[in-house]
């Protein structure tokens, strides 16, 4: 939940944010209406992907950064559709 406060403060000064949440905390992204959030189907503490899987980590990041360029004036929460892959 702390990340919501940080995102809010950043957005308030004009800095765009994107948050990468794991599925277990989807409700925080949705209920906080963070401006941009990517939900990954990964265990807690592994938001960006499996250890050592640089290729999947890159795909998570690119998907999240895409929200920064595309998302508009309403909260946008999308899913990362690849499975956990070690």
């Amino acid at each position: 939940m702390s990340v919501g406060h940080v995102a809010r403060a950043l957005e308030a000064v004009g800095i765009a944010t994107v948050c990468v949440y794991v599925e277990a905390f989807r409700h925080q992204a949705v209920n906080l209406r963070v401006p941009r959030a990517l939900i990954t189907p990964f265990p807690m503490g592994r938001n960006v992907g499996a250890p050592g899987n640089a290729a999947q980590q890159r795909r998570v990041i690119r998907t999240a950064l895409g929200l920064l360029e595309r998302a508009g004036d309403v909260s946008t929460v999308i899913n990362f559709d690849e499975a956990w892959n070690i």
Partner: peptide, 14 residues
Amino acid sequence: MLQEGVDAVFLTPG
């Protein structure tokens, strides 16, 4: 961060 010229932030909740 604004003064450091940051345009965008990628955040990961722990």
